[in-house]
Amino acid sequence: MKKVILGLSTLCLVAFTSCKNDNAAKKIEEANVTAAAVRDAVSSNFPVITFNETTHDFGEIEANKSVETVFSYTNTGDAPLVITNIATTCGCTVPQDWSREPLAVGETGKFTVKYNGSGKGKVSKSLTLTANTEKGKEVVKITAFVKTDDAAISAAIK
Results as ranks from 00 to 15, higher is better:
residue 89 T to K: 05
residue 83 I to S: 11
residue 91 G to K: 07
residue 83 I to T: 09
residue 134 E to Q: 14
residue 83 I to R: 07
residue 98 W to G: 09
residue 82 V to I: 14
residue 123 V to L: 09
residue 81 L to G: 10
residue 84 T to G: 12
residue 124 S to P: 03
residue 106 G to P: 00
residue 121 G to H: 02
residue 129 L to D: 00
residue 85 N to P: 02
residue 114 K to P: 05
residue 106 G to Q: 07
residue 95 P to D: 05
residue 92 C to W: 11
residue 138 E to F: 01
residue 80 P to F: 04
residue 92 C to K: 06
residue 142 I to G: 05
residue 127 L to P: 09
residue 103 L to E: 02
residue 128 T to Q: 13
residue 125 K to N: 13
residue 117 G to C: 11
residue 90 C to E: 10
residue 80 P to M: 02
residue 94 V to W: 04
residue 122 K to Q: 14
residue 103 L to Y: 06
residue 86 I to Q: 00
residue 93 T to G: 11
residue 127 L to Y: 00
residue 90 C to D: 15
residue 108 T to G: 00
residue 123 V to R: 14
residue 110 K to C: 00
residue 119 G to Y: 05
residue 83 I to A: 06
residue 126 S to A: 15
residue 105 V to F: 09
residue 100 R to M: 09
residue 139 V to N: 11
residue 86 I to D: 05
residue 100 R to N: 14
residue 96 Q to E: 11
residue 109 G to N: 13
residue 95 P to V: 01
residue 131 A to F: 01
residue 109 G to K: 12
residue 123 V to Q: 15
residue 97 D to E: 15
residue 119 G to I: 09
residue 140 V to I: 04
residue 115 Y to I: 03
residue 88 T to G: 15
residue 130 T to D: 07
residue 107 E to S: 14
residue 118 S to F: 11
residue 111 F to H: 14
residue 109 G to F: 08
residue 140 V to N: 13
residue 129 L to K: 03
residue 97 D to I: 01
residue 85 N to D: 15
residue 133 T to A: 10
residue 82 V to R: 09
residue 126 S to Q: 13
residue 90 C to L: 05
residue 96 Q to T: 09
residue 97 D to Q: 13
residue 140 V to G: 12
residue 119 G to M: 06
residue 89 T to Y: 06
residue 137 K to I: 10
residue 104 A to H: 00
residue 129 L to E: 03
residue 91 G to L: 08
residue 128 T to H: 09
residue 121 G to V: 04
